[in-house]
């Protein structure tokens, strides 16, 4: 009996020792998150930007949507019996699914034709074209330098935080509007699985020059117009995404209203909470939580300049 008790005590003691050793080794190799303070974004001096695709930003032509009411058609199914009726519906669903998929593919191909004459956009915009080395963004009145990460593995990022970006460039069919959609996820290097914050931003830039086409307008000065627009849109998207907390607070305090803006040369109407408005620009949060920065229907900046000159 004594031997059994001694053996049991020995066994339990050894288990306890091994467990505590394991805990200790864990603490040595990986500090727990609670022990390390994660800095807030507006405390950072610099932030590394990691592109989803380190070489190309995907580009596409905008698919012309017609939200106007469609004409509904009716379908009559043969129903000699319950089974034949169900079979007819099933066949129709399969055929319709295939037709819809083909139609969507056709529309995508047709929409992308608009990019063919833009060498910078036809196969995707080169990430190298974005100059971030001298750029800073202001978040809550605090300047942060942006560093374009060359690393394919975010785990090797040096700073306490980094931003993974998923930008897409869309050219409207009239070529008057270029749209950047960018999802920005901010991670801590200690916790790379779940982002600390995520924001989706959409920036719309409209281009219209007198007496020349929109294409010529973008392509002026060896496409410098296009490059600087993309550069500006990208920086604006990062700045807005990093300030999502204060933007969300502003949006929560505002009431929803109908906003009107210019896209693809036409008035576009959407519901959202206005964040900021200038003489030619509007920022608002959409009902789906996307931050949008868009041109107003009417640019009154010129008018105000004229007024001040006259007075």
């Amino acid at each position: 009996m004594k031997i059994i008790i001694a053996f049991t005590a020995l066994f339990l003691a050894s288990c306890g020792a091994s467990t505590s050793t394991k805990d200790a080794s864990d603490r040595l190799t990986a500090p727990s998150i609670e022990e390390v303070t994660i800095p807030s974004i507006d405390e950072l001096a610099s932030l590394e930007i990691v592109f989803a695709d380190s070489e190309l930003i995907p580009t596409m032509g905008a698919i012309a949507t017609d939200p106007n009411s469609p004409n509904y058609g009716s379908v009559m199914y043969p129903a000699y019996s319950g089974a034949s009726f169900l079979a007819a519906i099933l066949v129709h669903a399969i055929v319709q699914g295939s037709v819809t998929a083909k139609e969507n593919e056709r529309r995508r191909t047709a929409a992308d034709l608009v990019l063919e004459k833009y060498p910078l956009l036809s196969d995707g915009y080169i990430v190298e074209g974005l100059e971030l080395s001298d750029e800073k963004v202001s978040v809550n009145d605090h300047d942060i330098s942006l560093i374009k990460s060359e690393l394919s593995d975010p785990n090797q990022v040096a700073g306490p935080l980094y931003a993974a970006v998923y930008p897409v460039l869309i050219m409207s069919q009239s070529e008057e509007s270029l749209i950047l959609q960018n999802e920005v996820r901010v991670y801590s290097v200690l916790q790379t699985e779940t982002p600390l914050q995520t924001a989706t931003v959409e920036i719309v830039r409209s281009q219209k020059c007198k007496e020349i086409s929109a294409f010529e307008c973008w392509a002026r000065n060896d496409s410098e117009n296009l490059k600087s627009a993309i550069q500006g849109m990208f920086l604006e998207s990062i700045q807005l995404a990093l300030a999502i907390e204060s933007i969300q607070a502003t949006a929560d305090a505002a009431t929803s209203e109908t906003v009107r803006y210019l896209e693809d040369g036409h008035k576009k109407v959407e519901r959202g909470q206005v964040l900021e408005q200038s003489c030619n620009h509007l920022r608002f949060m959409t009902l789906r939580g996307v931050i949008k920065s868009v041109p107003l229907l009417e640019d009154t900046c010129q008018l105000s300049v004229q007024d001040s000159t006259t007075s």
Binding site: P67, T258, R260, V269, E270, R271, L287
Partner: peptide, 8 residues
């Protein structure tokens, strides 16, 4: 959105 677009 569709509703307020229809209103507009």
């Amino acid at each position: 959105n569709a509703y307020y677009q229809a209103i507009e």
